[in-house]
Design a binder for these strands. Sequence first.
DNA 1: TGAATATATACCGATACGAGAATATAGACT
DNA 2: AGTCTATATTCTCGTATCGGTATATATTCA
Lengths: 123, 123
Amino acid sequence: MDLVRIYECLCDRTRLRILHLLGQGPLCVCHFQEVLGESQVKISKHLAYLRARALVETERHGNWMIYSLPARRAAELEANLKCLQDCVQGDPEFGRDLEKLATLDLECCGLAEVLSRRKARSA
Amino acid sequence: MDLVRIYECLCDRTRLRILHLLGQGPLCVCHFQEVLGESQVKISKHLAYLRARALVETERHGNWMIYSLPARRAAELEANLKCLQDCVQGDPEFGRDLEKLATLDLECCGLAEVLSRRKARSA
DNA sequence: TGAATATATACCGATACGAGAATATAGACT
DNA sequence: AGTCTATATTCTCGTATCGGTATATATTCA
């Protein structure tokens, strides 16, 4: 996995916020829109950017697209995701994102079903 | 220190190689040219880029410019420099850079004198 | 003073990015 | 079939980046 490609993904604040949220677990597009308060297009394009560089994976569930961090991650990616989570500690905006995420109904898109199916597959 | 600014510095391979080398200690421009085998302009511009974002510091010594990592570093910078050094382990190009650096005469620009003056100042 | 050396800057062209507006697609439901 | 909802893509514009060529600056040395 190319280090430079990873860093390219990290040099936009919206993408950092997305990756930070994904540290909590899989989410669908509407969650990002809601938490970050950004337009659908903007979110969707940043997700496409991350996906094209394999920093996130997707799974369709009906109308919804579930995004998650890759199940298996190259060492460089793992290290940088960890570093990101550390660096972001104490930044109020990232903190608020987590708080806002906690208030959301994650089940709007049937997340639980996707996760249980996923668990079954990997077993 | 803005995280995004840091990541912007990290998304070019030449700059990664420069920062990696600086992990060994202060160096002057001619060392980078020699080790990386890149043109003077290219090196100089990447160093200017890093300097503008405070990822490196400079000190003039006669005709030479000595570049080093900042003496005092924000936590985010420190964490990412550490992460970079880890991620780069095992990449042959970065390894060769270190080997090549070891063969150079670092004293071409009077580095030792600068370092001893610097130590005296901080004491 | 002038010449030589080390480094920096200005300018140019090609390419990529970021954001918004408009439009397209895919799946669910009737 | 058509409609609705969630998400993706296309187009366009302004701006940043990267690399090269040419030129400028700063310092030393004679």
